[in-house]
Design a protein around this nucleic acid. Structure first.
Lengths: 107, 107
DNA sequence: TTATTTAATCGTAATATTGCAATATTAAAA
DNA sequence: TTTTAATATTGCAATATTACGATTAAATAA
């Protein structure tokens, strides 16, 4: 059916999965890394940096934005993207917690 | 096209994405958590625990296995699953690193 | 051997994702 | 106002994912 049955899972499980899903594409990983590498705000060098078409990048940026990971400030006719550090740290914590709680008791 | 252009990205970026993709479904998050909660090896209570059909769980388990995160030992007619702790720790490190390197320099 | 039980695989339907060309929107620049 | 440049949106094709019923495979139990 291609539909995740989210109602079967806890809110926490759905949240981890939702974040992981966004990180689950190399273009989005690359976009986040590129944005964070820039000294100041960057605009649309992302398209040149990564070899994907502009609409494709725009779509990926939108996925990242929906998670609240990117703040975009208008600057003339371009938009300046940067990481929302607070949000990023919250997600970092979420994953740290998730990873930390998984242990093996056997084998 | 529905195909990720993996050749555009670094191996590290593709690896982070591949792992995140597997964690990007709440059923797989729930399965990992459930397996890790068990004292010893568990078998197919997962199907009862989570409300998905047996073939669906089997598919999700397979995705997790492909990442090397689960070791399955035969035990009679059942299979005993458990987390591969070493592998898990490696991926934990990978994510810790990824999260840690993202910073904001602006806004 | 013949059930029975457990887990994997097959086949398939529904839906989601990825990617891009074409187009629209928005704001500065001329 | 008209042009130019940057980004978003639309529409669509190709492919992937999610889910499950039916079936198969493999091992124990009767």
């Amino acid at each position: 059916m291609g539909v995740s049955k989210t109602q079967l899972f806890t809110e926490a499980q759905n949240e981890v999965a939702a974040v992981a899903k966004v990180l689950g594409h190399p273009a989005r990983v690359a976009i986040l890394q590129y944005i964070s590498r820039q000294e100041g705000c960057i605009c649309n060098d992302i398209v040149d940096e990564i070899g994907l078409a502009q609409p494709t990048i725009s779509q990926h940026l939108n996925e990242i934005k929906k998670l609240g990971l990117i703040k975009g400030n208008f600057e003339g006719k371009t938009i300046c993207y940067c990481i929302d550090t607070e949000r990023w740290q919250r997600l970092q914590e979420l994953f740290k917690n998730f990873f930390g709680k998984i242990n093996s008791h056997c084998c």
